[in-house]
C-alpha cells in the first residue's frame, strides 16, 4: 500500500522560540492524515509543541555531484569571524 501513498517530511518545534527541526518522514494520503500520523509517530513522548508536514516532492535537494563547489570553500579563513579583538566588557557574545 505504501507504494501508492505520498511521502511527507516532518518537522517538529521542541519548544517556543526554537526553530522547527527535521525529524523524519512518513507516508500519508493527504496533509490532514500526515499531521495525525506525525503526532502518532513523532510526538509520543512530548517531543514538541508544533508540527509541520511538507510533501517530500516539494523539497529541492542539492546534487551530491556538486558537493565540491557547494561545500568545499577552500582556504578562506577570513570567512570565519575570528580576527576581532573583543573587549572584556562585552562578555559573552
Amino acid at each position: 500500500m505504501s507504494g501508492e501513498v505520498p511521502l511527507w517530511e516532518v518537522f517538529i518545534r521542541p519548544r517556543n522560540g526554537l526553530a522547527h527541526k527535521h525529524v523524519g518522514s512518513l507516508h500519508a494520503t493527504d496533509e490532514v492524515m500526515a499531521l495525525q500520523a506525525a503526532r502518532d509517530v513523532y510526538t509520543r513522548r512530548g517531543e514538541g509543541n508544533s508540527i509541520w508536514v511538507v510533501p517530500s516532492k516539494a523539497i529541492t535537494a542539492s546534487d551530491p555531484d556538486q558537493a565540491g563547489e557547494n561545500f568545499e570553500p577552500g582556504e578562506k579563513i577570513y570567512r570565519h569571524p575570528t580576527f576581532y579583538e573583543i573587549p572584556d566588557e562585552v562578555g559573552h557574545m
Binding site: M1, S2, V5, L26, H27, A28, Q36, A37, D40, V41, R44
Partner: peptide
Amino acid sequence: APMLEEDLAMPN
C-alpha cells in the same frame, strides 16, 4: 496494520 504509520496509531 495496513501501513507503519497506522501500526503505531492503533496501539497508541
